[in-house]
Every structure is written in C-alpha cells, then in structure tokens.
Amino acid sequence: MSISVKNISKSYGKVQAVNDISFEVKEGEIFGLIGPDGAGKTTLFRILTTLLLADSGTAEVDGKDMVADYIDIRNHVGYMPGRFSLYQDLSVEENLEFFATIFGTTIEENYDLIKDIYVQIEPFKKRRAGALSGGMKQKLALSCALIHKPKVLFLDEPTTGVDPVSRKEFWEMLKRLQQKGITILVSTPYMDEAALCDRIALMQDGLILEVDTPENISKRFPTKLYNVSTDNTYKLIQDLKSYDSMHSVFPFGEWVHYADENKKFRPIDLQDYLEDKEHTNINIEITEPTIEDTFMELSDY
C-alpha cells in the first residue's frame, strides 16, 4: 500500500474537520478525494504531508509512519498546496533550482520526470513566478513538487480556478506521471474530474461516504434516473418536488435530474402531471447516473 490511513481524526476547537477516516491507496494509483469546500480535504492533506498532527489515528505513507518517520516522508513526497505558494519574486528557473537543491538534487538529475511539463514553461524561465499566468503557475508548482522524484504526489485542488483547456492538459500530465510509477492523491471539487481517477473517496463534513471506482460509485445510485426539462426550469423544480413519489430532484446542467421512489414509475404519469401544471415543451428521458448524482444521493442534499 502506498498510503494507508487508519481512523484519523482532527478537530479545530469544536469543528470536527476530519472524523475517524480510514482508506488505502494502492501503489501507482490516482486516488481522488471528492467533496465540497469544507469537507476536510485540505486538513487530510496537511496531516498526510506531516504539516499537521492528527488528534488520533495512524497513517503510513510509502510504508513510513506519519509521526515517527516524518523526515523520511518529507524526502519522498511531493506536495502542491491549493494556493500557489512558490516564491513570486524568484524566476521560474530559480524556483525550480531552489527546490531541487533543498531536496539535495539537481534539475538535470530528474529532468526526464518533469520534462513534459517543464518544456511548456521553459520559454519563460527567466520570468518571475509572480508574473506567470494561472495555468503556467500551476505547471511550475507541479514541476517543483516533482523535482526530487517523489514516490507519492499530493495535489490539493490543483485545478481550482484553472481554465478548462489547462485542466484537461493537467489531467493528461497526471496520467503520464502515473505511468512512471508515481502514486497520486488528488482532491477536487469537480465531479467530472472524479471520473478520471482510478478510485475515489466521496468526502463530506469530515467523513468518507464511499470509496470505490468511479464506475461503481455511479452504479450505486439506487433507482432509475431521468432527465427532465420544460420551458420553465424554476417552476419545474418546484413542481417535481411536490410530486407524490418523488425521491430526489436537483438541477444538472440544462436538465433537472429526477428519481422516483416507486419501482413502477412510468414517465407518462409524470408527463401528465406536468401538463396539468401547465408546463410546455416537456422532455423526459432516462439517463445514466453520474458520480455527482451518487454524491448528492449519499450526502442527503
């Protein structure tokens, strides 16, 4: 096991940030922590990167104990915090060189590992980090986190605030790093990114709701799911919520996702109901549940 977490808890005063969490990450896996802001993802990251001591529980990273072997862990993990935290007044090259030296290595030694990423920012290597665009900052941060060839990479919301193209590129980079044998623990509030992980843990309020592959998580949705749309989405949500056998209703892009309690549910009945409520242009079709649907289901929103 690359990461193994057992019954970790941490509270800040009365707020229970992480509550008795256990999970395991296999070697070479991309493991996603999926959950809304405040779910406890960052706290968990800080504990696993030895920045924060847990109140109780144990954890091992790369076979080393989080508390006893913390120095060893620091030598073998890369951490990219959610907030850009490199030296803004140093140039791209200087930042990379600084972190390489701190880890007792050189850029040349591990250049092959960061090459794919670094070549994209190399034309700007004399530019100060503070003057880079968001996507380039993120690439630099990833390069710095990788420069000492870590075995485990911790990425805390790496794509928050990054444009869709850069996000896609970033995930492609992660896939390539995975092929080089690096275990990656990544957190994200975006459900579409969850599908790109090998396995995911759904987190909310300091608890883990479910751990499984994205496909299995989607399959956990208990009933059939329908896409519904009419001309008046707002009124549609109100009306669906007051439908007798309603199980869950929430907006999903241009659609409204609707699930019904009743096993014998027929879309035609719903159609009639909505027509009675004077909806026009009614569309009802069956759809595959996504991770987001399962998350909403499990978290009782």
Partner: peptide, 13 residues
C-alpha cells in the same frame, strides 16, 4: 502570508 513557509515545511530541510 504568501504560503511558501508551508511549502518549505514539507521539504526535508
């Protein structure tokens, strides 16, 4: 303030 201390702290320095 700028968050670099945390980045330094995860290094074996």
């Amino acid at each position: 303030e700028i968050g670099t201390l945390e980045q330094m702290n995860v290094t074996p320095i």
